[in-house]
Design a protein around this nucleic acid. Structure first.
Lengths: 245, 245
DNA sequence: GCAATAGTGTCTCTCAGACATTATGGT
DNA sequence: ACCATAATGTCTGAGAGACACTATTGC
């Protein structure tokens, strides 16, 4: 029988084979009304030329979450992030052909950025539409397609019962703007998510608070009022997600 | 700037400091109407004599989930488990005073067992009521109190929108039995969770299907009908959890 | 019969969904 | 004026919560 930590308290070197521990980042944003994910192009084997999640090794003196924040800054130039949440850990023995790697995946949600990855050390970095990723475009390295699938589902689910959508907007935003975030993330059109009911739901849930009477600059129709994030952490009852057609 | 995997594809040894990777198990059950968690007593330093989550090292040739199943068998004698779900990963640099350990926590839900840990190699293993653990009784080793807190909340939340409760019952069960599971996990009394409404909700949700007309053996009152788990994976709309008083 | 537990009926209130209507800007 | 978009109002049906009631067992 294998010796275990709890069983004998011993630390036989054979018991703790060394692993590399990495973090993988799922940086989501909304660009031009599309739900997008940041990917980097791999330069070296294996999977050279394939797209992959940004990420890197956890250092000895930092927690996985600290490593995620560091990589977010290094690889995407993102130093401020509202939401950074652990997704799950992926540790299949063969997920990296070279060595034994266990990777902790994190979700980050950022507003639309002017430059996709200004000041990063990952030259070939860009946002890809989630709709395409769900169709396998582009193909991803390692087991990143699995991680991405899980991350997309988590993001969609959290939109139902948390004020997460506001993280995709700036500091101030309109309710129609928030509405378009929901439609983009869930991949539904305006018919499936009624604008009037959405407005009422958002206003009564405490998810938003008015931002000092101001309104959004000129568009083609009536200017929308501006709001900020409310204090609530859960939306209760949740905003129901329409079934995808 | 730190070299990263994605940035250059290089594998400088300085980039991947070796970590030990372990799994921690949160094995929940219902005993005598109480929501309980399996703990083992530590025999060695650090934290000798303290109670801790069962767990152990991930071996080179197995995934963390495989390791969780193996430890479940070795430390608790549990070879069949309906639900084994990853909770989260804990990797603070100082969570273990001896070495750098990253631990993946798993949740398991088992029916009440005749022997708490028959045929295990962890002699001092027993189930502890969750109600006490929430009051800090007993004190736990490492950061296990944090892990336990997260696990309890996850279990309570999953009861709302999944058929998880059935995993605490045997193959066949009664609706009043399921009702008592909900009350035990949520820590609410019969007043807070109406039995009549619960019955209706469970029957109409598809969570259970009748088990061939049979009824439970003689109790003090009217015998209850027996049911099995339904096919559904999500309960929709969810069973609402009463606010704890 | 009575106690105890299982199960049904019914009412009300909240809320999501559908959709009509009004408000306010640009051109 | 007209169009486009924002916001409100109104009706309806599903369903949760409260609670009265009936059913089936053991004693």
């Amino acid at each position: 029988m294998t010796r275990t930590r709890s069983g004998n308290g011993g630390y036989d070197p054979a018991d703790y084979p060394p692993f590399a521990v990495t973090v993988d980042l799922l940086v989501f944003t909304i660009r031009d009304g599309e739900f997008c994910l940041l990917l980097v192009e791999r330069g070296a084997e294996p999977y050279a030329g394939r797209w992959a999640l940004p990420g890197g090794f956890v250092q000895v003196d930092e927690s996985p979450e600290d490593a995620a924040r560091r990589e977010l800054a290094e690889e995407a130039g993102i130093t401020e992030v509202d939401v950074l949440e652990q997704l799950a850990t992926y540790g299949d023995p063969n997920r990296d052909p070279r060595m034994r790697v266990v990777s902790v995946a994190y979700l980050a949600f950022v507003p639309d950025l002017p430059e996709p990855s200004a000041g990063t050390d990952a030259a070939g970095a860009r946002f890809w539409p989630v709709a395409g990723l769900e169709q396998g475009e582009p193909a991803l390295a390692f087991d990143h397609a699995d991680i991405v699938r899980d991350g997309i589902e988590r993001a969609r689910a959290k939109l139902e019962y948390t004020p997460l959508a506001a993280a995709f907007c700036g500091d101030e935003f309109t309710i129609p703007g928030l509405w378009s975030v929901y439609r983009a993330v869930w991949g539904v059109d305006a018919d499936a998510l009624d604008q009037a009911n959405f407005q009422r739901k958002v206003l009564t849930s405490g998810m938003v608070v008015p931002a000092d009477g101001s309104r959004q600059g000129p568009g083609r129709g009536r200017p929308a009022r501006l709001f900020r994030r409310g204090e609530i952490e859960v939306v209760h009852p949740p905003i129901r997600r329409p079934a995808p057609p």
